[in-house]
Every structure is written in structure tokens, then in C-alpha cells.
Amino acid sequence: MDAMQYELTLPADYDMEIIRERVRRLGHMLDHRKGLGLKAYLIRTAGVGGSSVNQYAPFYLWNAADAMSRFLVGGGGFHNIVRDFGRPPVRHWTVLAALAGPARHAPVRSATRHVATLPWGTEPAAPAPHPQLHTAAVAFDAYRWEVVRFSLWATESPEDPEATERYEVLHLSAPPSEGF
């Protein structure tokens, strides 16, 4: 399983309703995407939830690396982002653990991400269950020696002093036949 994310940091005066409308119009397009575990359509809005930026930052869990590759370079949907915003750098991690939480069947409202350097000799811990946890993943970037802990929540995300980013979830594409 692979995780990926790109971040489109937008101007401070950008109307985030434009992104909300884009997701309302196009978000369903990956709801049945072969090889996709899930795509969380994430935003951060300057001045909300501690964010200093306006940002569109979708996060993906892929069950198949070839499906991820086709999406990025094979005209499988990413070309719309490139057309509208340019070609952003895409972060990529190898998933070490993924967990379907107790709130797996509830609608998703928020997400948290924590990125940190992985100390040598340390093995990242699996995500801990929480009553409002929808999905969690722990993934690793061997180039940067970083670990990312990503969580989707059925409520506003719980206080987490370690979370480096907190997001609002606009839509979740989670193909039923591609679950993990």
C-alpha cells in the first residue's frame, strides 16, 4: 500500500468556496477508482483551526502502485490538477500500517497529519484506535527518513499536540471493493 499527497498553497485572499465547489462537482469521479483505497479531499483555511494558509491538499491511500502511477502520468485524473494549478510536487510514502477505526462507516469531517523524522532504530507504532477514528495510516519516506501519521475523523479532530496539520474533509472517495 502507498500513500501520497500534494499540497496546493493558495493566496491568502483566495476564495476557498472555489475549491469547495470543485470538490462538489468533481469529487465523485474517484468514488469507484480501481486500485484506490481512499482519497480524502482536504483543505486548510487561513485563520481556521490554527491554519496560517489556504490550501488544497488531497491525501490518498493506494492499494496498487500501478494504479497510483496511472493516475499521476496516464491521464487518470491528475491532469485536471495540472491543467488548473500547474504540476505540484507529490509526496509519496510506503504504508507500514493502516487501520479501519471504530467510526469507519460514519461520514468523515476532519483529518490530522503528523510528519516527523524517524530516529534511527525506531519502529513506528501502529495507529491506536479511538472511538471517533474513521481511518488511520502510518507511512514511511526512506528518502527523508520521515514517518507520517495520517488520521481521518468522524468529528472535529481531537486535540493532538503532535499534529502538524489539521484539515477539513470535503469529500471521501473510498471504493467499496478496494478497501484495505
Score class of each variant (00 low, 15 high):
Met1Gly: 12
Met1Ile: 13
Asp2Leu: 15
Ala3Pro: 04
Gln5Asp: 06
Tyr6Leu: 13
Thr9Ala: 02
Leu10Phe: 02
Pro11Gly: 01
Pro11Trp: 09
Asp13Met: 09
Tyr14His: 10
Asp15Met: 05
Asp15Asn: 13
Ile18Val: 15
Glu21Ser: 10
Arg22Asp: 13
Arg25Glu: 13
Arg25Ser: 06
Arg25His: 10
Gly27Leu: 01
His28Phe: 03
Met29Asp: 15
Leu30Val: 09
His32Lys: 06
Arg33Gly: 04
Gly35Tyr: 00
Gly35Asn: 04
Leu36Thr: 02
Gly37Leu: 11
Gly37Glu: 12
Leu38Glu: 03
Leu38Ala: 08
Leu42His: 11
Ile43Arg: 02
Ile43Tyr: 01
Ile43Cys: 01
Ala46Glu: 14
Ser51Ala: 15
Ser52Gly: 11
Val53Ser: 11
Asn54Cys: 11
Tyr56Lys: 06
Pro58Glu: 00
Leu61Met: 14
Leu61Val: 09
Ala64Lys: 13
Ser69Lys: 15
Ser69Trp: 13
Val73Asp: 00
Gly74Leu: 05
Gly75Glu: 07
Gly75Val: 09
Phe78Gly: 08
Phe78Ser: 10
His79Gly: 12
His79Arg: 12
Val82Cys: 08
Arg83Trp: 12
Asp84Met: 08
Arg87Cys: 12
Pro88Thr: 09
Pro88Lys: 04
Val90His: 04
Arg91Met: 01
His92Lys: 08
Trp93Arg: 07
Leu99Arg: 15
Leu99Pro: 04
Ala100Tyr: 03
Gly101Ala: 05
Pro102Val: 07
Arg104Ile: 00
Arg104Trp: 10
His105Trp: 11
His105Cys: 04
Pro107Trp: 12
Val108Trp: 11
Thr112Ile: 06
His114Pro: 00
Val115Asn: 09
Ala116Asn: 07
Pro119Lys: 04
Trp120Asn: 12
Thr122Gln: 14
Ala125Ile: 03
Ala126Gln: 12
Ala126Asn: 06
Ala128Thr: 13
His130Trp: 14
His134Met: 05
His134Arg: 14
Ala136His: 05
Ala137Lys: 06
Ala139Val: 02
Glu146Ala: 06
Val148His: 07
Arg149Gly: 07
Arg149Tyr: 06
Arg149His: 11
Arg149Trp: 03
Phe150Lys: 08
Ser151Lys: 08
Thr155Cys: 05
Glu156Val: 02
Ser157Ile: 05
Ser157Pro: 11
Pro158Asn: 14
Glu159Gly: 05
Glu159Pro: 00
Pro161His: 11
Glu162Tyr: 10
Glu162Thr: 15
Arg166Leu: 12
Tyr167Pro: 04
Tyr167His: 14
Tyr167Glu: 02
Tyr167Gly: 02
Glu168Ser: 07
Glu168Gly: 04
Leu170Gly: 03
Leu170Met: 03
Leu170Glu: 01
Leu172Ile: 13
Ser173Glu: 06
Pro175Val: 03
Pro176Trp: 02
Pro176Ser: 10
Ser177Phe: 10
Ser177Met: 12
Glu178Trp: 05
Gly179Asn: 14
Phe180Trp: 14
